[in-house]
Design a protein around this nucleic acid. Structure first.
Lengths: 347, 347
DNA sequence: TTGAAAGCGCTAACAC
DNA sequence: GTGTTAGCGCTTTCAA
């Protein structure tokens, strides 16, 4: 027989007080006398009183829950961001409700609706790749609900209560490619992602500009716009090796495609990084486990989550929205390090 | 100026009806006349009426939200389980609230409290590794809230509304080790996890029994109880290679330690699988990316999530609790395949 | 077939 | 200091 939850009314009647007094005592309202406060607190403790958050939310008109909507939880990126969100939210006394759109616009719309009715104090959203229609987000804006986009934002959508936290993809790609040039590479291929997605377009731009900044030509035959999967990376690498003048380095917009390229290079007898140097993007877990370990661009995913919560909290305190751009970090590993490295153990 | 949410009262007054009639019409209550129902539905549609779920939950005394509590979202396992949970819950009309205990008992207690007050219709929990005190779970049981443990359960805790869904770790380990024996391995080492955790203890038992079942001796010097990290696996492998009679195969209770072992083997000039065959546990993403790809035991994580929701739904429909044990699947890859494989491309 | 009224548990304005 | 009252939005008796 489950023990019925104890309510403020229960405490009130046991103490011959009114519910309001009990409520005030529990809230440390200074109006209530010290004696009463103590009596109430003690009994609440004994009875194991827990406030009914639903009633509180109904009364207040808002809850202390933040809604999170991510495309998926596969790979390492989104789980790490969510981790950062959870951590920061919990420190600020908020809890977190997580939904997945599974990269589907319709599912995304449903989840938005669900979260708005949950209800939540604010939303943290990373767009599904399939999203074309931004009407559901207009609805969020119309409702005046604070909204922070992270990683994947809607470029045009701004508003009183809309912020964004993204990474500087352009800078990340520029750093990686510049590094390859500094290691002596002169023909740097690019495994691009789908260029209609902003992040991949930016990385491509960073690649192109870095080449120009170092006086190297941009050669379209070195750019492979592929889906970011291992097999695609392998296929693209095979094609690149067929060129009359094959590349001496590869910069990939994703780590998975780069692993495919690495495998093809090793099969074909090329040495990495001596014959072909490699750099990727995302700092996926496995990049540290390959041989050689892969140079990659870290996206500060955990911090992105924390920062997104910060922005949301700011807006909840009626501060102005902001567009935060985080600077990524290049992790140089053996796959790209030609100069200044230790000698190999086996000659 | 955010448009105020439209409520049942708003619809009622616009239509000169009472709130109760509108509520009934919206709920497809057969008592209400067809005409009225249509008028109400239409206006609700036009005004974009969305029920306030908080009010509904307060009224009903329960919500349509399921609470999920996981130790963390790193790696692939828990995200995949959560994915399965989300999918199944959403199909059944429930939404999901996810919390992380970060492997910390105190955080776990707090989150349980939070979810119980959220409130949720039921709980899906995987224990934090640090949890010793099961009192918070007793409280859940006392409250009569349906609870499903997945992957990491409390062995002793049973009750009217407590189910569990776990994988058969013993069988998984037994399958992997039997496979190694069938491939001709006779001295099989074991990189065990911390044996005070049930899953690692079970895997160790499966390892031991598989040896006995094939008439092989159990040799304690081949068993390394280590933390499941890459460096630990590497260190353990180095030690194993020092033995006067080193192993011809390694079964690891985790994939990460196995990667460490693989790297040490390659550095030392051993061939995998010809000199030393390898098998791991978990089917981590990177096991398909190493060279050679690693044989490993898949835990059906996605299906575990779906099954956990099924069990919860059953209990919500007043069915009896159950203890479900999923059978894992051995994925044979090149790291263990000595016989019946294609000849290598390069001789 | 519809309406009036009560109440889920809590808080805040307003009395006293 | 404390109590009274009202109401958040919804559903569900009960009465008409």
């Amino acid at each position: 027989m489950p023990a019925r939850r104890v309510s403020i009314g229960d405490i009130a009647s046991q103490l011959n007080l009114s519910p309001s007094t009990v409520s005030r005592a529990l809230a440390h309202n200074p109006d209530v006398s010290e004696v009463t406060r103590q009596r109430v607190q003690q009994l609440a403790q004994e009875l194991g009183y827990q406030p009914n958050q639903v009633a509180v939310a109904l009364r207040r008109g808002h809850s202390n829950t933040l809604g999170v909507l991510v495309p998926h939880l596969a790979g390492t990126f989104f789980p790490e961001v969510v981790d950062g969100i959870t951590e920061a939210a919990s420190q600020a006394g908020y809890n977190v409700m997580i939904c997945q759109s599974r990269e589907d616009a319709e599912q995304e719309r449903k989840n938005l609706e669900l979260l708005m009715n949950a209800p939540v104090a604010g939303l943290l959203v990373s767009l599904a790749s399939a999203t074309q229609d931004y009407a559901p987000f207009e609805a969020v804006r119309a409702a005046g609900l604070p909204l922070v986009f992270f990683d994947r934002a809607i470029e045009g959508l701004t508003g009183e209560h809309i912020s964004s936290v993204v990474i500087d993809d352009y800078a990340g790609a520029h750093m990686a490619v510049s590094h390859l040039v500094e290691q002596g590479c002169r023909r740097i291929a690019h495994l691009a992602g789908p260029l209609h997605l902003a992040i991949y377009e930016q990385r491509h731009r960073g690649y192109e500009q870095a080449l120009r900044d170092h006086g190297l030509p941009y050669d379209a035959e070195l750019v492979c716009p592929i889906g970011q999967h291992q097999l695609n990376g392998a296929a693209a690498m095979r094609q690149l090796l067929q060129l009359s003048c094959p590349p001496d380095a590869v910069f990939s917009s994703g780590d998975l495609a780069l692993v495919g390229a690495l495998q093809v290079l090793k099969e074909s007898g090329r040495r990495v990084p001596d014959d072909v140097a490699l750099a990727g993007f995302s700092n996926a877990e496995f990049t540290a486990l390959t041989e050689p370990p892969l140079t990659t661009v870290d996206q500060h995913s955990h911090q992105m989550g924390r920062e997104a919560v910060n922005q949301l909290l700011r807006m909840l305190h009626a501060d102005a929205p902001a567009a935060v751009v985080l600077r990524p970090q290049l992790l140089v590993r053996a796959s790209s390090q030609r100069i200044g490295r230790a000698q190999p153990l086996v000659s």
